[in-house]
Write a protein that binds this DNA or RNA. Structure first.
Lengths: 214, 214
DNA sequence: CTAGCTTTGTGAAGATTTTCACAAGCACCA
DNA sequence: TGGTGCTTGTGAAAATCTTCACAAAGCTAG
């Protein structure tokens, strides 16, 4: 099987979101053109993306919304529940622990962990904050495959090494630093400062042609 | 001037982060090889990225750390202060308002806004939560060019239209929905559920070759 | 001053991703 | 049953991004 590009997976995820909307509203079929318009891409792109995984559409008609939704869920591995642990009970950790979008998609937070003894034991939504000491065994006991890292950059790599050793298989990293993992562990990083810097660049370089800011 | 790829800008941002570290530690020069290693890319990529903007290095020696740091700051438009407003005083808004990384990089939060009358007036870090009604005039008075959107998907496009009309020039969107802006406004979206789904996909498709999870 | 070692800057090659364009397939209608 | 209109699926072309490979340039030592 050919390798699937990261950008493709991202778009599949977006298609799924909008297909679910259409499905809820009872729409039977959707054309690549309609999906493309909703998702801000092109019809050809939609068709190419989907065609990696099979022929889901009917020519002349479009794609069956409900059926394609199910197919995409399966492709993305969302037909099951994923157990997730959150490491770091700061503001970002709080936002993530409460995020409805996760649960809606089948991601269940089974534990929140923090270094700080003052926070350990406090209830937080459904979960109670636990000590980092129990992190490794909890990963193994719960068989949680995914960890979300919401801790400062300094400790990040050390914590990663720890949870990788405990058997974690995927990490979503919010710490603003490069971290490295063995090849069998998947890693995605989100860096908010970096995103803002991208905007700063865009503003600065449009500004040269446009009107210089004060 | 040739168009700069988004991925290039992202890497520049990363180079800057690590160069600052090196600079703090007093290191004089850094080779493309060293930078690449720190940032998880290749030496050729580093050189190519930098060469878009000029010749900053010395052959046989590498790049002068302090000088290149300054160049990158200028390229990214970080030599000035950027005023930022945050729309949405939920958990995500809270995390962003408190995020040190923003201020460190020259992004100053000049206002936090929320729809909910119960929240309006409360102090939040340095800022006080204000009503959405004052949003438009505040953008104009403060000349804040950047908005961070941390609100539910439903209202997102409406709020965007509002702040675009008020003269915002860049938006960092955390609402899990596609939004559209006129061409003179820059837009970046961060979607945490989508990132997790990317991990789910990776796990699912590695799992077929590896050992299926329970 | 020259030889030797190192590292940049960059055209060209290679790889990947997106767009184009059109034949093939399906539904509907008369 | 055959014609018409629409939309998919997909090779091929175009565009974009990354890697390669090497000449040019600087530094050090003798």
């Amino acid at each position: 099987m050919k390798r699937i590009a990261d950008s493709t997976v991202r778009r599949l995820s977006m298609y799924l979101r909008y297909l679910e909307d259409l499905d809820t509203r009872g729409q039977q079929t959707a054309s690549s053109d309609e999906l493309a318009h909703l998702c801000g891409t092109t019809p050809a792109q939609v068709r190419k993306d989907l065609s990696f995984f099979g022929s889901f559409g009917k020519r002349g008609l479009g794609y069956p919304v409900h059926e394609l939704t199910a197919h995409l869920r399966e492709i993305l591995g969302l037909q099951r529940e994923w157990k997730v642990i959150i490491v770091g009970a700061g503001k970002i950790g709080a936002a993530l622990a409460n995020y409805r979008g996760f649960r809606q998609r089948g991601f269940t937070v089974v534990g929140v962990y923090d270094h700080d003894p003052a926070k350990v034991g406090k209830a937080w939504g459904d979960a109670t904050i636990r000590s980092m000491d129990s992190l490794a065994q909890d990963i193994q006991r719960e068989e949680a495959p995914i960890a979300v890292l919401a801790i400062p950059a300094e400790n990040a790599q050390a914590v990663v090494d720890q949870i990788v050793a405990a058997g974690i298989r995927a990490i979503l990293n919010f710490a603003p630093t490069q971290i490295s993992v063995p090849p069998h562990v998947s890693l995605k990083s989100v860096n908010m400062a970096m995103e803002l810097e991208g905007l700063s660049f865009a503003l600065t370089n449009a500004g040269l042609l446009d009107q210089g800011a004060a």
